[in-house]
Design a protein around this nucleic acid. Structure first.
Lengths: 186, 186
DNA sequence: CAATATATGATACGACTGTTTCAATAACGG
DNA sequence: CCGTTATTGAAACAGTCGTATCATATATTG
């Protein structure tokens, strides 16, 4: 007996905390402002998650989950050519609506470089996308187990994202992708 | 009259502080541990630089200066083909010795995304390299003012660096560069 | 020596951090 | 109502942060 637990509260808090982190970034995150924004208290954040560290882990997992779901929804159909699929992915991920995800993505990568001990599975952020995207570009691969083509394709996307988020020069980055598509064609 | 100022002290401190930041990263930087590592005091750090913010700016400028100098030393000779130059740049920048620079580079980028107000000239980190690297690949450009080719080349390098620093998979990233060279050739 | 300007240590301030402690409240079954 | 378990608020703790204050030391010129 006794009062029944309410797991929905933790879930709701996690969802809203993820929104907050996507909006404000990971860098300066602290419990008191976060709690205030979520209409809760630091006390409850530590009650539901056991420490700030675990809260952050949960938020990052949730963000990854959301990103993967959105990507699955928007993956270009298999029927399209590899070029069309590449263009589709670039258009999707470079859209302004994805900026918070992209920002968090880069932030986690940078933090992982400085403090690898906090990210025991840091390679996942790369290889996660590989399984889906590698399959997407299977037909332009040089062999059945070609990891090189997805590596290069993703490098171009990430590199152009880096450029776009820094310079904001969409025209130039879009054209660089055009050029890459052109190279792939010949 | 009065005691003469000693500008060499500030310079020496800046040099050692840059070493420290390259080794420890920007994220958790704080004055007291930094001062302890440099055999000085927070008091003196604020005396020479006026605030932590200005100290960081000076360190980043110094790091950029060093990186540019090293790059200038190691740029492949003009006589080489574009492919050889690209391979040379990749070999140089992906070498383990450059890891601290690369790490700081990504860290600044991520921090700039979260707090653009602290980096009024954030596009410089991109365009700086452009002037030198764009010129390096002038001969594979499609036109006299082709910004697209350097954009793509740098995107590949940065994207592969991102991958390499995350996964540590040198073999796969090296091969992805091979593949890119192959695409450029045809 | 005095006057002067730079350099430096010691210390304190106020704000913030993640976390803990203690007590109170709330919702349930019996 | 009672026992029990879940939840929650208020406050405190021990620490770190950037920075300011004040006094002192050091090196120079006249």
């Amino acid at each position: 007996m006794g009062r029944p637990p309410n797991p929905a509260r933790r879930e709701a808090t996690l969802a809203r905390a993820t929104d907050y982190v996507l909006a404000h970034g990971l860098a300066g995150l602290s419990l008191r402002p976060l709690a205030a924004a979520l209409d809760t208290s630091p006390r409850m954040l530590l009650y539901d998650f056991n420490s700030k560290q675990e809260l952050v882990s949960a938020v990052l997992a949730e963000a990854r989950r959301r990103g993967a779901a959105r990507l699955a929804e928007n993956l270009p159909p298999e029927a399209a050519t590899a070029e069309e699929r590449l263009r589709g992915i670039w258009a999707w991920i470079s859209a302004p609506e994805r900026a918070p995800f992209v920002r968090l993505f880069f932030e986690v990568h940078a933090d992982g470089l400085a403090h690898p001990e906090n990210y025991p599975d840091r390679a996942e952020a790369i290889t996660d996308w590989f399984d889906t995207l590698g399959a997407t570009f299977r037909d332009i691969a040089t062999g059945p187990d070609d990891a090189v083509t997805p590596t290069l394709v993703m490098a171009v996307i990430r590199g152009l994202l880096f450029d776009l988020t820094t310079t904001g020069d969409r025209r130039r980055t879009d054209r660089a992708l055009d050029r890459f598509c052109e190279l792939l064609r010949h």
